Measured scan of single mutants.
Amino acid sequence: HNGKLCKLKGIAPLQLGKCNITGWLLGNPECDSLLPARSWSYIVETPNSENGACYPGDLIDYEELREQLSSVSSLERFEIFPKESSWPNHTFNGVTVSCSHRGKSSFYRNLLWLTKKGDSYPKLTNSYVNNKGKEVLVLWGVHHPSSSDEQQSLYSNGNAYVSVASSNYNRRFTPEIAARPKVRDQHGRMNYYWTLLEPGDTIIFEATGNLIAPWYAFALSRGFESGIITSNASMHECNTKCQTPQGAINSNLPFQNIHPVTIGECPKYVRSTKLRMVTGLRNIPSIQYRGLFGAIAGFIEGGWTGMIDGWYGYHHQNEQGSGYAADQKSTQNAINGITNKVNSVIEKMNTQFTAVGKEFNNLEKRMENLNKKVDDGFLDIWTYNAELLVLLENERTLDFHDLNVKNLYEKVKSQLKNNAKEIGNGCFEFYHKCDNECMESVRNGTYDYPKYSEESKLNREKIDGVKLESMGVYQILAIYSTVASSLVLLVSLGAISFWMCSNGSLQCRICI
């Protein structure tokens, strides 16, 4: 991952900044910058967002509201009850120091605090018919004063009620008058409520006091790749198909172990950190130390980045220098085999997901714990399936590479015959000098055995068991695999060879 928040398929997220979902939807004055928000790819909250409900109280069923919003990608904020005409018999300019803005008392931008007009609070009834052709999110509140005197001074009615009804919602609220500790300079409380109004449905408000009335509502448009994440990451000019709280993932790998919460087309989250597919040879310690064997393909974004291909070729060293050249036929066979294998694994496992966190309130801790156990169970199954699949494929890959290298080895052996000696570690020792032209003939299969047989015969008789390297004779190393990324691999195959001279070296080696 890149540690950044990015656009998702070209669409920017909605960053709530210092506000949370509650503050944004109710219209906390400190969240005025969010009022123009219309569309987004996903919503970003920060872990310690401080601006929620400015007048103390709870947004009821907040967790369910977050779940609903996680599939919303755009909205239209509109005046559901026009301020100047909807409440002619009531005062609608209630403000509070708890919702101060720029040093002055204020109130929510989407709600109206209705109080008595003169000395009376006549029963009010108002309704709205949803003609938007889509779901409408309606929010309101109920004020709970701290004393009967406060109730009387604001609403005149000691036994007030609030009723809200639609086809799918029907509740009646009565204020709970009680002494409470002071929070944000208030002994009173406000509880906030919401409902989704279906197209064509009607919502009716009736009250004799204590109503925090809707002013603006939201017509919602769903987008199934949307979601809500909690993150401290910063926004950058970048684009992605998959976003996590820790950063964007741009990967076609089937798995990731970065974060379980994802938005967009994302690899499946697994616990494993070692889900690797081999593309090189079986481990040979001396070669492995030099980083030549054991190439791997990573299938977990965050564990290993991208696929690494092994390729086969020849390396030689003689009086004229040293050089490398790919054996294109065996390399292409290996590439085709690995590509098919990788595609097979991805096809089997690479279903892209959006995974969002589930919200539970403080009273639902047991449910949250149960949900976590269920999620953990599914996660263990996914991890096991992934590891088992790759384990089985790896064994076949190792066998496949062994065969490829063996074929190259036999190709060289059949040409050199007794003009060189096998020394048991995949290397041959020449009994004759071999210049670049000679080396090329070994690589392309045109090695002239009779041409060098007499010199080889004489050297075999002279050496008589002495280690060949100390006599200045020449080696050919018969097994060799270097490691390159897919891009470098293609470039390498396009070149005939490249040279690395070893000044004054008397050794001649050709490596497979």
Rank of each mutant, 00 (worst) to 15 (best):
L468E: 01
G357A: 06
G306M: 03
Y449F: 12
Q415I: 13
S485M: 00
I287M: 15
G280L: 01
E368T: 03
I335Q: 06
N418W: 05
I249M: 12
G294H: 14
D448E: 10
N419M: 10
E393H: 07
V466E: 08
E437A: 14
K372P: 03
S481I: 14
S322Y: 10
G494N: 01
Y289M: 06
D435F: 00
M277W: 02
T397P: 04
T240P: 00
S286W: 00
L477G: 00
N404K: 13
L487H: 00
N436R: 02
I335H: 03
M439I: 14
R443C: 08
A495P: 00
V405P: 05
R290S: 00
T339K: 09
E469L: 15
S441T: 15
S322P: 01
K372A: 07
F299P: 12
F430E: 09
K433T: 12
I263V: 15
G303E: 06
I338V: 15
K417P: 03
K417N: 12
L253G: 00
N239I: 11
T339S: 13
L408A: 04
G424T: 13
F428E: 01
I512K: 00
N419P: 06
C508T: 05
D435E: 08
K348F: 02
I258Y: 07
Y431F: 08
A386S: 09
V278N: 04
L292I: 15
F428A: 01
W311F: 14
E469H: 08
V278I: 06
R290D: 00
D399C: 04
C266M: 09
Q256P: 05
K241M: 05
A386E: 13
D402P: 05
K341L: 07
L253Q: 08
T383Y: 10
P254F: 04
N369D: 09
I512F: 04
N336R: 13
K348A: 13
K433P: 01
K413Q: 10
H432L: 11
V278C: 14
K421W: 03
C508H: 03
A248G: 08
T351V: 09
W382D: 10
F428Q: 06
E455N: 07
C427V: 12
Q352P: 04
